[in-house]
């Protein structure tokens, strides 16, 4: 299994555990802003990240020189996805409890990073989706 895929899948598993923990937290403490965190840890951090990792591994070769696409591109997907998710996990509840200008712009940064991760993934695998 390639290194990038191992990183994706391990991070996906961490998101799964954190997402389920967020679900428990919601039942116990009911903090404002936690529901989107719970939802996105599971759908974005777990499901989508797991798909990204396995697709980068399993889809038909991009090219002989770069079988999984340009290395910098796929690593940038990993980095931006997780950094964006982390910013969101921290600042979405914080902004609900005690909004600040810094927190507001952190959410904007999270949005841009997560958006980039999706676009970069699509760019990295588009050419790999082909019939024989």
């Amino acid at each position: 299994m390639p290194t990038i895929t191992r990183w994706f899948i391990k991070a996906a598993l961490v998101s799964l555990v954190l997402g389920l923990a967020a679900g428990i937290w919601q039942q116990v403490a009911s903090t404002a802003g936690m529901f989107p965190v719970y939802l996105h840890l599971l759908t974005f951090g777990w499901l989508t990240q797991l798909i990204f990792g396995v697709a980068i591994w399993m889809f038909p070769m991009y090219s002989k020189e770069h079988p999984r696409g340009p290395e910098w591109l796929v690593w940038s997907v990993f980095g931006t996805l997780n950094l964006g998710l982390l910013l969101r996990v921290v600042f979405e509840p914080l902004q609900s409890l005690s909004p600040t200008i810094f927190g507001a712009w952190a959410l904007v940064a999270a949005a841009i990073l997560q958006w980039y991760s999706g676009m970069a993934f699509a760019a990295a695998v588009w050419k790999r989706i082909r019939t024989k």
Binding site: A110, I112, A122
Partner: peptide, 28 residues
């Protein structure tokens, strides 16, 4: 499969774009 997956990627691009706009608007 190629058609299914390419369609899913188009939805990914659009869905992420809309979601990012919503989150950014939530912040500022």
């Amino acid at each position: 499969s190629s058609i299914f997956i390419r369609a899913s990627l188009m939805y990914l691009v659009l869905g992420f774009t809309f979601g990012s706009l919503i989150l950014a608007n939530k912040g500022v």
